[in-house]
Design a protein around this nucleic acid. Structure first.
Lengths: 350, 350
DNA sequence: CTGAAAGCGCTAACAC
DNA sequence: GTGTTAGCGCTTTCAG
């Protein structure tokens, strides 16, 4: 008979209106900070809101709202537990939260099927915009997205053909710089370890590697180019087999972070950490604490996220200019492994 | 006159019904795989769906649906770019996707204000359930959540007092094991580096450290216990100052991953990586490649995620049993730093 | 087996 | 300033 019974269940705007002695539209005005409400009325409404612990139903609102916006963004990445994707996610989340927009994040594991399923789901949830990473060169769902009028920005990987906003690292230039760095340190027999070449990033990094060799007049040795490596273990195995060749590479360019980790393990196991040079694409946590430090081509996922968020919000605010393809520069961070001079490793003759 | 004009804009169920010559409810039945539709009718509907490239509006559906479910989950973590959170996120996402549920992820940076803001937003979006990490001992929004009848599971950190489902690491036992490991290797002067003690995890790990000292009859030396460390740099600075003491610690227990990274830097800079022992709470990528390898108390974020998802879905499916507090065991992984014997480091007298 | 009508909680449009 | 009415796209209810 003293403590007022705490409100139970969810109150609706109608309940608030009733308690405040106002019409629902007035409550709506107050909740959404629309003009034309007297301070006195506003206070009565807010009191009722507090009393009932009322919270708007954003879903219901967007159903009727003129612009049809759900204040929701869809983000698709390889996996949300990948550090690179994590940084992009965080950056996008921050930009979105500032505008009262929430983010649905989904992982697709570089699988085309999971990718289109995820996009379909996101569309069914009526996200206002999409920030996507793709596993394929030409996503087949692009027509659907376009028909729905949902803006889309691709991050990390740029689809071919379609005219779309994209934000990605300078993969080719970065890989060329990394390979050139090894060449500058005297290497001519440089292995390449790369991911599935059907992924545009792997393809571009492969091209960059070839560019550097060509620029230096070094012929390509197919036997020390290993691709289709999808995890650290595969990377380790691949490098181990290369090191066992009669004429093993004196340096390695690893085109992806997991592969770099595998390569580091292989070198350590072969006790060649100080003899065979290594440059990896994408930075690694603790890369500076390993002995010798790991030389990498660092990407800038934060900048990628910031630019992608900017782009999608610009589109949402009506920017109809031509799509832009943005390339975020990479940075070579010399820490040790990339500066090892060539050394004959095993008993190659000659 | 040949290529049928591609469908423009979003079609509604009404459009599909019209094209298929059916009622909307019939279309709804087909879309949702409800019984009582003849195959012939179903085919006509699916044809129309394909023709119009129709996709249901899940938001609109949940507005009217009896159970009111949005098939949406809210996940709150310290930061989505934290690897520990990333794994939990991924695990939850997988479990949710299997049930057609999407996940809103949000970061709160161990800030109470951001935390309650995020929870409010999630509630406004009518998530069916919440998986939360909290920065405070007693979240003030719990009443609201309870009133709304939204199930909640806490992960990583367990709030005090309230009777809630929680899934967290065995922080206290893990920290005790880590400290005991150092004691077993002969150390008696063991520093503790920890995060803000108002975070329940830091508090529990601090307790575990004290437990181990007490069990070994080692008196507590307040001057080598440093807390309120919030990033790697702070951890590095703290350890550097300890190493400069007249009577520096011979071993360090670091209660958090970022702090461990800072500690590794401090040891390396002081050239004491091989002289001062270190055990860190939470595993680190590349911890096995550093020289010496970093001994850690590894957590199992995947298991935490799996259990949390199981719990929330059980609640959603009507499990009304008493709340459970689950503790996921930690694992000590000896790699080198934790097995260094005590050594007088600088010129302490005596 | 099918479909017409009502209504979910909100905002738009338009009265007062 | 304020309230009433309609209706967003769907699912429920219930009558055929």
């Amino acid at each position: 008979m003293s403590t007022p019974t705490p409100p139970r269940g969810r109150a609706t705007m109608k309940d608030v209106a009733a308690l405040a002695g106002a019409g629902v539209k007035t409550v709506s005005r107050v909740i959404n900070n629309e003009p034309n409400v007297t301070p006195a009325m506003a206070k009565r409404v807010w009191d009722a809101v507090r009393e009932l612990d009322y919270q708007v139903d954003l879903q219901a609102g967007s159903l009727r709202r003129a612009d049809g916006r759900t204040r929701t963004l869809g983000l698709l990445v390889g996996s949300v537990d990948n550090p690179f994707a994590g940084v992009i996610h965080r950056t996008v989340e921050d930009a979105a939260a500032e505008k009262g927009v929430a983010v649905f994040a989904a992982s697709m594991d570089d699988d085309a099927r999971r990718e289109s399923d995820a996009v379909r789901t996101l569309l069914q949830r009526r996200v206002d915009g999409l920030i996507l990473t793709t596993a394929v060169r030409r996503p087949e769902y692009l027509g659907t997205i376009r028909d729905r009028g949902v803006p889309v920005v691709y991050v990390d990987r740029e689809p071919e053909g379609a005219d779309l906003d994209t934000v990605a690292s300078s993969n080719r230039a970065g890989a060329e710089a990394g390979t050139a760095h090894l060449i500058a340190h005297g290497h001519r027999r440089i292995a390449l370890l790369a991911d599935r070449l059907d992924l545009i990033t792997a393809h571009q990094r492969h091209s960059g590697y070839l560019d550097a060799l060509a620029a230096a007049g070094i012929p390509v040795s197919e036997e020390i180019i290993i691709t289709e490596l999808t995890d650290a273990e595969a990377g380790a195995k691949a490098l181990s087999s290369l090191l066992a060749l009669d004429d093993p590479p004196t340096a390695v360019f690893s085109a992806q972070n997991l592969i770099t980790i595998g390569a580091l393990h292989a070198l350590r196991d072969a006790q060649l950490s100080h003899s065979v040079a290594l440059v990896g694409f994408d930075d690694l946590p603790l890369a500076d604490l390993v002995e010798p430090g790991v030389t990498v081509i660092a990407q800038d996922p934060q900048r990628i996220g910031v630019l992608a968020a900017e782009r999608i919000f610009a589109r949402l605010e009506g920017d109809h200019s031509a799509p832009v393809r943005m390339h975020v520069p990479t940075t070579l961070i010399p820490r040790g492994t990339g500066e090892i001079a060539p050394r004959r490793v095993s008993g190659g003759i000659r």
